[in-house]
Design a protein around this nucleic acid. Structure first.
Length: 402
DNA sequence: ATAGTAGGGGACTCGTCTAG
DNA sequence: CTAGACGAGTCCCCTACTAT
């Protein structure tokens, strides 16, 4: 078992053979454990039949089978039903481990779930509850108490719900409980008012034309590699994680495109230590795309290359890749210098999409540039009227003629 | 001035339901 | 049969804080 697990952890992959192998070995191990726990002897009678005893309804019942394997099956089934009664904590770990093993989740998601577990469940009485002792009333009380104690927002609650659902579905599949997670949460009667509200500042998410001009002007005067990274972001609208993991070979000077094919990721390793690294996208992902760039953008790339001619990555300092966090700080610093409110790189992305949409660029084109799977995303999150009041008035005037 | 980290919550996709 | 509304689930950016 060790070797297979070791391989899985080291390379993040398992062949089908490995998986089957692993499952078999886990199964065999489980059987052995249960048989060892069986307190009654197993014997063969003179007639060749195999016997043992099992405690049924407070009484020992004699069981008889023709061969040994069958009698062992009975024993294993009996005790697995009776003995296996893991705690919520154990179930969470098993659930996460299983999904990780099968590669169902990105490491960032596992990080998220683990954080939510830590936040809501770790150190509470609920963590130690054995699944067979859990009923819907106990679950209900825990959920409601957690909402109140943490003064959760609706979003925060959804984090709690997802891990509880995961744990319960897993437990149900393993036949530890009959509680149906989806039914429970469906029926859960929680008023909207119980959640804490969050007020967001509306116009925070985008830069105005004037602000963009100021930033570009500043970068032209101070063309450091970091500042030029921000320039490239303004010219392409890519995600900051994509920006920070660009390589020189991603830029095609002939076709004037950039191949976006990887991104920066962060996750917690085995020891819980934070790791920042670059991951290649799976080929099928919509995020894998070629975006169209203009001559001005090519020019920016050339200047970047002059500053870091040998690098593996486009943006490096002293041979180290500049991380997305570093680029974010750079943008903050620029905002400070030119005297505008601090906004993050994602605001540049929103601005990019809004400018295109406001100037009647085809939606499908914007969708491709942004790397959205669904056109609705492009509309929902990025369409935003940045035109000034006079122009808005003019538009209404043109549309309404009565 | 810059890097590193933890954790929250926003950004995004996907599946399902429904009306027309 | 299809668009679109909606909620659930996943992924990633941002904030806040510490450290150097």
């Amino acid at each position: 078992m060790e070797d297979v697990l070791h391989k899985a952890l080291k390379y993040d992959i398992l062949s089908e053979e490995d998986l089957e192998n692993l499952e078999n070995r886990i199964e065999v191990q489980k059987r052995e454990d249960l048989l060892n726990k069986h307190p009654y002897s197993i014997w063969q009678g003179k007639n060749g039949n195999w016997y043992t005893k099992l405690p049924v309804n407070e009484q020992l019942k004699l069981i008889k089978r023709k061969n040994k394997a069958d009698i062992e099956n009975i024993i294993v089934d009996f005790w697995s039903e009776k003995l296996e009664n893991p705690t919520i904590k154990e179930l969470f770990n098993q659930w996460i481990e299983e999904r990780e093993l099968y590669g169902e989740l990105r490491k960032s998601s596992i990080k998220k779930y683990s954080n939510d577990y830590k936040r809501f469940i770790k150190g509470t009485y609920f963590e130690a509850v054995h699944i067979r002792n859990l009923d819907e009333e106990k679950l209900y009380l825990f959920v409601k108490n957690t909402i109140v104690q943490h003064s959760l927002t609706a979003k925060g609650f959804s984090g709690l719900r997802i891990i509880l659902k995961g744990i319960l579905k897993y437990a149900k599949r393993k036949k530890y409980t009959s509680i149906s997670a989806s039914v429970f949460f469906q029926d859960l009667d929680i008023g909207k008012n119980i959640f804490r509200k969050k007020h967001k500042k509306k116009e925070n998410g985008r830069f105005t034309d004037e602000e963009i001009r100021m930033i570009i002007h500043y970068i032209s005067d101070n063309p450091t590699i970091r500042n030029l990274a921000i320039m490239l972001c303004i010219q392409t609208g890519v995600r900051v994680g994509e920006l920070a993991s660009l390589k020189p070979e991603d830029i095609n000077y002939q076709t004037k495109t950039i191949h976006i094919q990887r991104t920066e990721i962060t996750y917690n390793d085995r020891n819980g230590k934070n790791v920042v690294t670059v991951s290649e996208y799976p080929k099928t992902d919509e995020s894998d795309r070629y975006i169209i760039i203009l001559d001005s953008c090519i020019d920016t790339v050339r200047r970047i290359r002059l500053l870091n001619p040998q690098g593996t990555y486009l943006f490096e300092e002293k041979g180290n890749r500049i991380r997305s966090n570093g680029l974010r700080r750079t943008l903050y610093r620029i905002c400070d210098k030119v005297g505008i409110p601090r906004r993050g790189p994602h605001s540049i992305r929103r601005t990019y999409a809004s400018v295109l949409l406001d100037n009647y660029t085809d939606e499908s084109l914007v969708q491709n540039q942004m790397g959205h799977t669904d056109i609705a995303t492009t509309r929902k999150y990025y369409q935003y009227c940045r035109r000034d009041e006079a122009e808005q008035r003019q538009q209404i005037k043109e549309a309404i003629n009565y």
